[in-house]
Amino acid sequence: MAASDVTTAGPDDRRARARAFIERRHRIRLGEIVPWLLIAAVFFIFPDRTTFGTQVLIAIMFALSLDLILGYAGIVTLGHAAFFGIGAYTVAILSARLGWGEPISMLFAAAVLAGIGGLISGWFLLRYRGLTLLMLTLATAVLLQEFGNYRSDITGGYDGVPGMEIWKLLGVFENDLWGHNYYIYTAIVLFVVFIVVRHIIYSPFGQALVGIRENVRRMHAIGSPVHRRLVISYTIAAAIAGIAGALFAESTAYTTLGVFDFDNSAKVMVMLILGGTGRLYGAFAGATIYMILEDEFSKAFPEYWQFGIGLVLVLTVLFARRGLLGLFEDVAQYFRRSKS
């Protein structure tokens, strides 16, 4: 039906309809306020858990950046920690070696440097797909880590960069012991980043990414600049991962080469898939649940928490293939259907 409409209608018409479609998709739904209410509520209900909460928010941002490329553009990477690491080290080197510790400007610096990293590596690597891409992204992260270890005079190697002097936020708020200020700061940054990502996803550019994920050949055939779009999305995702890394370094005032670990890349991927890819809020659900499970299991059975996490992953794949949010939708739909 739609196809015949498009062929008969004039170009202006078509454009208007496309705009209407995208605007309709773009409209903020009521339910979208829930995660933000929760983030705010946590601050008041668990004021003694904000240090942990800050780390959860950072993990959400990191997973969100991965969702942009993995969930929307279908780029499977095992080296996303590289950009997190670049962000963290931007902050570390600025504040410990170059004497500049202003937190907000450091976020921008981290975003730019990580973005450049994404642009360069993406330009080379995004010609490949599948296992090859997995290995190439992985090797890139390892190379960065090895280089960092080679120049341990600057990076401090695996002992990291201590003595980072992070200035007060806006010259007023310091990183207090309870981590209240940084929780608010991280939440605000996450919100801004989220708005940007949401905007991108519902823009024509975002739709093109989904097109690439669903059918690369067709996108090529209709003359879409596939490689360029992939590289742009990769660059944006890298910049956001860089901001997450920078926030991590600022909040802990410390970073080591461990940020480049394979574990870090794998963990963020697991978080995202757990929550559900390509659905924007999957990163929120996945990162939060993973972090809380890890935290709880590691308290209850410190030696064996891995079993629990492993089991949850296996069950998710077997019974909730589209992630926990997907499961949630299925259940909701089931009830709706049985009602009618």
């Binding site: 003694d48 858990r49 802990t252 590691s298 308290k299």
Partner: peptide, 23 residues
């Protein structure tokens, strides 16, 4: 009160120590 120190990178240590103190 036993808590997991986390990976050798020390990434979790600050959070764990802070929570031991504040919580």
């Amino acid at each position: 009160i036993k808590r997991d120190e986390g990976p050798p990178s020390g990434a979790n240590a600050k959070t764990v120590a802070t929570e031991l103190i504040t919580r």
